[in-house]
């Protein structure tokens, strides 16, 4: 019931709603991309390299004559996967840890928060890079690294929300009626702290896309023949003096996707709590 209201309000946040539609579209597109792309992404056409956008190649071709439009569609997969893993790992590890820490309190909470604070004092990209470096350079490891670096934020958020909810009458009532701690956390606390976590997840989704692109750009993520927008930009960068146009579409794809995640987050925040001010 409450969530239906939120969805209705979200519908009235035009920008956020359009962003949601775009992101869903992107997810679907990245799933069906292999079926619909017009070219083989690896098919080289050395007679037609670095072509400008035309009817045959909508976004032009790269330095090996590969179709940029095709590669862009397939590169969306890496972005979406990174976004998904970037929020799933924190949701399944960070949130439970945060709830437990906030609910149990005491020394465990103190130690836990120190660790979270320490983790958060690392610059996100640097830590992701270092973790990827340790695990071994690959797209999959980069995504895991992204998931790890977002975990402390979610843990801190979940803990803070749990501290607020913990003293609510319905939690106290559940305690008195003899419910176990894990039952209370799962059935009473989690549903009541879900909203801010969903908002955070939206922002993290777009940040994950950005970090994945950065890592792939540095050669720490997607490895050829894997395709990623960041990797395409790396390729475009090496051609920057020859054909500056090559970088246009992959960059735009990242920008629009990140914007969409941010707009969705802003809209969700307002939809969940209409009292907050717009800035």
């Amino acid at each position: 019931m409450r969530y239906r209201v939120i969805v209705q309000r979200l519908y009235h946040e035009k920008l956020a709603f359009i962003s949601l539609v775009y992101l869903l579209f992107l997810v679907v597109l990245s799933i069906i991309a292999p079926l619909i792309v017009p070219y083989d992404p690896e098919a080289q056409d050395l007679t037609n390299v670095m072509a400008a956008p035309n009817w045959a190649h909508w976004f032009g071709t790269d330095e090996l004559g590969r179709d940029i439009f095709t590669r862009l569609l397939l590169g969306g997969q890496a972005a979406i996967q990174a976004g998904m893993i970037g929020i799933l790992i924190p949701l399944f590890i960070g949130v439970p840890l945060g709830i437990i820490s906030g609910y149990v309190g005491g020394v465990i909470d103190d130690i836990f928060m120190r660790v979270v604070d320490a983790m958060l004092s690392f610059p996100a990209i640097l830590l992701a890079l270092a973790i990827t470096g340790a695990l071994g350079v690959s797209l999959w490891n980069a995504m895991i690294a992204i998931g790890i670096i977002f975990t402390p934020q979610f843990a801190r958020l979940a803990r803070g929300q749990t501290l607020q909810v913990r003293r609510e009458p319905y939690v106290e009532a559940a305690k008195i009626s003899g419910s176990g701690a894990s039952w209370i956390m799962l059935k009473h606390i989690l549903p009541n702290i879900a909203s801010p976590i969903i908002v955070q997840a939206s922002f993290s989704f777009s940040l994950a896309i950005l970090v994945e692109a950065s890592l792939s750009f540095l050669g720490m993520g997607a490895q050829s023949p894997q395709i990623s927008w960041g990797g395409m930009l790396h390729q475009a960068y090496s051609m920057i003096f020859v054909n500056p146009l090559m970088m246009f579409f992959p960059g735009l794809a990242i920008l629009v996707s990140v914007l969409a995640g941010n707009f969705l987050g802003d809209g969700l925040r307002i939809a969940i709590d209409p009292k907050i001010k717009r800035t």
Binding site: S206, L210, A213, S214, F217, G230, L233, A236, Y237, I240, P244, M247, G251, I254, L255, V258, L259, N262
Partner: peptide, 17 residues
Amino acid sequence: VLGTAIPNFWLAMILVV
């Protein structure tokens, strides 16, 4: 809005061009 979403390396490439 734009400054928080634009990939900095893409911005860098545009400015270099």
